[in-house]
């Protein structure tokens, strides 16, 4: 009995340590990005680049770009980080959140320019092998923190939105559920995440 308790305490302590470490990493990158605006230090930028560029590239590929275009767009996004660093406000967002929004905007701009041409063409049948890619991606993806605690159906719609750039209607079609269900899952996921984040502040 008492042995179990001791082990439980160990597990809790370990979890707290992991949580602590994650927060430290977040804070470190946020501090790094903050000081970049002042110092314009290329070494500091290089550190950010080494950590974030491969992640931004992975994100952009998920969003539907081929690897060559993703490589180029990642470089553009990281250049934007350098150009806009002085607009970064640590009290409003972590470095990863801020860099995510920059990369996302680059993606949207590019996709819109391409889509403007694409719409002229007749619609193609969706590749049947692609249809369930989202579900596999969710299962394969190691999830952490608050998002990991969501029921899979809710995590799945978040992944399809953020990782694959799918609209609500596209998600509804892919999962074979009504549009209203997609929205209610997103709403539920969002309110749970807000409650979780409310307990521990990110910044």
């Amino acid at each position: 009995m008492s042995k179990d308790k001791a082990e439980g305490a160990d597990v809790n302590a370990a979890a707290a340590l992991v949580e602590d470490k994650k927060k430290k990493i977040r804070d470190e990158w946020s501090a790094c990005l903050s000081s970049l605006a002042e110092t314009r230090d290329k070494l500091e930028f290089s550190r950010l680049y080494e950590y974030f560029a491969p992640r931004v590239k992975a994100y952009i590929i998920r969003f539907g770009m081929n690897p060559a275009a993703a490589e180029e767009l990642t470089q553009e996004s990281m250049l934007a980080v350098w150009r806009k660093a002085h607009l970064y406000n640590r009290s409003k967002a972590s470095a990863s959140t801020w860099i995510f929004t920059l990369a996302r905007n680059q993606c949207i701009d590019r996709l819109r320019r391409e889509k403007a041409v694409e719409y002229e063409l007749p619609e193609e049948e969706a590749d049947p092998d692609q249809r369930h890619y989202g579900e596999h991606a969710v299962v394969a993806q190691r999830m952490e923190d608050a998002i990991a605690k969501l029921p899979e159906a809710q995590a799945q719609v978040l992944y399809l939105s953020y990782y694959e750039g799918k609209s609500h209607s596209e998600i509804a079609e892919q999962l074979g559920i009504p549009l209203g269900s997609v929205k209610s899952r997103l709403r539920l996921a969002f309110s749970k995440l807000k409650a979780h984040w409310g307990e521990k502040s990110e910044n």
């Binding site: 990493i25 977040r26 974030f52 992640r55 931004v56 994100y59 967002a93 972590s94 990863s96 959140t97 801020w98 860099i99 995510f100 929004t101 990369a103 996302r104 993806q141 190691r142 999830m143 952490e144 923190d145 608050a146 998002i147 978040l158 992944y159 953020y162 990782y163 969002f190 995440l193 984040w197 990110e202």
Partner: peptide
């Protein structure tokens, strides 16, 4: 922030 968290993971 959801996007930011996913980007780290």
């Amino acid at each position: 922030r959801i996007g930011g968290d996913l980007l780290r993971q």
